[in-house]
């Protein structure tokens, strides 16, 4: 993709190529994600959007090496600063996890172990990766909490998770993720469990991380609005495959894949005319084991043709976008 990233240098930080994850189910192998390829550059925020079953969380956990279901098979390549992560020994992966790549999860309510103070748990991560005393670790913890906008950080560090509100807990989770200055932060639905006013604050925080901490972010969400608000580029997943990629602004202005178009149209508009009925997409996204042959979206697609029974390749669709559709709207280049 020859695309200008406004905030990022062109150094690739994470290169994912042909990543496939499959699990055995009733004697056959079911692919959870198929041929996921993308590049995340330094200081870039990439949004991974999709509905349930699209494989967005599987992609993230596979990169982190956190998938441990028995019989699970991962193929393809994940290169982080040139180092191959697929097949890396558990010990080496552990050293990267939490130090170079950190991950935050959806529900801040359950992210912390309930029996330790928040500060203790952040200290623990710092001390797992760096030779620091408990006192030095705590100093950094308090400083991090302060940077994340936690009021009275010294006291908050000594409080238990259940004593903090959802917003504060998510800030503490982010502080913990950033405690070893990771170059890549993977955020899996970081604001889904939060109220909108709190979500706005957390999104604001995430978008400033590249300036304050130099981190790249892989933001996983189902909310197109969240992506539009925070991300430089977007990857839309549908049923374990990439449907479309591109720069956020361009993609939302001119989606090239019928799924992206339909998905954007089915969001009720907050401004402008209210349609009496929303242009909904019929049916539901298929579960991995019932994925149709060919283009997975074809049974729900208005423009499906016979050719759609073969899998469309991801191909350039103009404006720096790529879409996996034989009829992607690339012909009608708009300006």
């Amino acid at each position: 993709m020859a695309v200008n990233f406004p905030h990022s240098t062109s150094q690739p930080l994470l290169e994912v190529k042909d990543l496939c994850v499959s699990i055995p189910s009733y004697g056959r192998s079911v692919a959870l994600i198929e041929h996921i390829s993308f590049t995340l550059r330094e200081r870039e925020i990439l949004g991974l959007v999709g509905e349930s079953g699209s494989g967005k969380s599987v992609t993230a956990t596979a990169i982190m090496g956190l998938l441990d279901t028995p019989g699970l098979k991962i193929t393809g390549s994940v290169r982080f600063r040139g180092q191959e992560l697929v097949g890396l020994s558990a010990r080496k992966m552990r050293a990267i996890r939490g130090r170079d790549i950190a991950m935050i999860f959806q529900d801040p309510m359950t992210a912390f172990t309930p029996v330790y103070t928040v500060g203790w748990q952040i200290d623990e991560q710092i001390m797992a990766h760096e030779r620091l005393s408990r006192k030095q670790a705590r100093e950094r913890t308090v400083q991090l909490l302060a940077e994340m906008g936690v009021p009275d950080p010294t006291r908050t560090a000594n409080r238990y998770p259940h004593q903090l509100s959802g917003g504060l807990r998510q800030r503490a989770v982010i502080a913990m993720a950033l405690s070893c200055n990771p170059t890549l932060l993977i955020a899996d639905e970081p604001t889904t469990a939060l109220d909108v006013t709190v979500q706005a604050q957390i999104l604001e925080l995430i978008s400033t991380l590249r300036d304050t901490h130099g981190s790249s972010v892989l933001l996983i969400t189902h909310d197109m609005g969240v992506v539009a608000e925070t991300c430089d580029s977007v990857m839309v997943l549908y049923s374990g495959r990439i449907a479309e990629t591109g720069l956020a602004e361009a993609l939302f202005a001119h989606p090239r894949h019928p799924y992206t178009t339909a998905l954007l149209n089915s969001i009720p508009p907050f401004y402008g005319e209210r349609p009496h009925r929303l242009p909904a997409i019929a049916g539901t996204p298929p579960a991995p084991h019932e994925r149709p042959a060919g283009c997975a979206f074809s049974p729900r697609c208005h423009d499906a043709q016979t050719i759609c029974s073969t899998i469309p390749p991801l191909s350039p669709a103009g404006n720096g976008q790529q879409a996996a559709c034989f009829f992607s709207t690339s012909g009608q280049q708009e300006h």
């Binding site: 909108v196 006013t197 979500q199 706005a200 999104l203 909310d223 197109m224 609005g225 969240v226 992506v227 539009a228 608000e229 925070t230 602004e249 939302f252 954007l264 969001i267 508009p269 907050f270 401004y271």
Partner: peptide
């Protein structure tokens, strides 16, 4: 506070 795809950044 609500982010919206058509609103952009």
């Amino acid at each position: 506070a609500i982010p919206h795809p058509t609103k952009g950044k």
